[in-house]
Design a protein around this nucleic acid. Structure first.
Lengths: 122, 122
DNA sequence: AAATTAAATATGACAAAGCATATCAGACCA
DNA sequence: TGGTCTGATATGCTTTGTCATATTTAATTT
């Protein structure tokens, strides 16, 4: 069996986030090249990120996220569900504006914290 | 005139986030080495990140943030202030638990989008 | 319908930076 | 003085990120 001694972190962005990025780009009618030039990256780079071939640096992802009118926030775990529902609310059918965006945020789904030991108390 | 043709992203993590990371680590009484072994990184790496010498990849930062009982969320810009105050609330003196944590989240403060045209109208 | 043209995305090779291993300098204590 | 524990530094390997090119897809013309 391919028993990875070391999980090597993710290997790619969470799929949910990749879809969110691509969705937000397409929603604006921007091509990869258009987005790339706006944010100061290259089209190749965008392609690699969206297709999951590379995990961008934090600052790179931040640029991308911001150009797409979002932000990356460091949220205490206890607040994550609240924020999530806030986000879900925000793109409810009411707001026709954002109606097209799918569930967008970095969900935990792709990370296996199964082997994680529930760390000590705060 | 030092007219940067290309801003080269950040160059380091926002100082606020670096302080938050280091603060959260120290709050737990962990050394860089201890944190490193817990999260599967190296002490060298942690040092470089906290001191601002390197900008970690997204997945690396995510591991760090999660071990410190936080998460990285992709939030629509319109909701950022709300979430921020939520976070501020959460670590208000009321909660003696988190009383020690400083302002922790990725604030925009350290990014100079001054040269960037703020045209983000959808 | 086939061919041609153009645009959007994906693929390859090189340079830059993250990340790992080993080591070092300082602080603290026995 | 030695020993241990802390964070920082030096050297290589791996991956990101850039430049140039190929492949796919769609629209237009004949």
């Amino acid at each position: 069996m391919t028993k990875h001694i070391r999980p090597l972190r993710l290997g790619a962005l969470p799929e949910g986030m990749r879809r969110a990025l691509r969705g937000a780009r397409e929603k604006r009618g921007w091509t990869q090249r258009e987005l790339a030039s706006r944010v100061g990256l290259t089209q190749t780079h965008i392609s690699g990120i969206e297709s999951g071939k590379i995990v961008p640096r934090y600052d790179t992802l931040l640029e991308l996220v911001r150009i797409l009118d979002h932000d990356l926030l460091m949220v205490p775990r206890a607040l994550v569900p609240v924020v999530q529902s806030l986000i879900r609310d925000h793109m409810q059918p009411d707001h026709k504006d954002d109606g097209e965006e799918r569930a967008l945020y970095a969900d935990d789904a792709d990370n296996e914290e199964s082997s994680e030991e529930p760390r000590d108390e705060v």
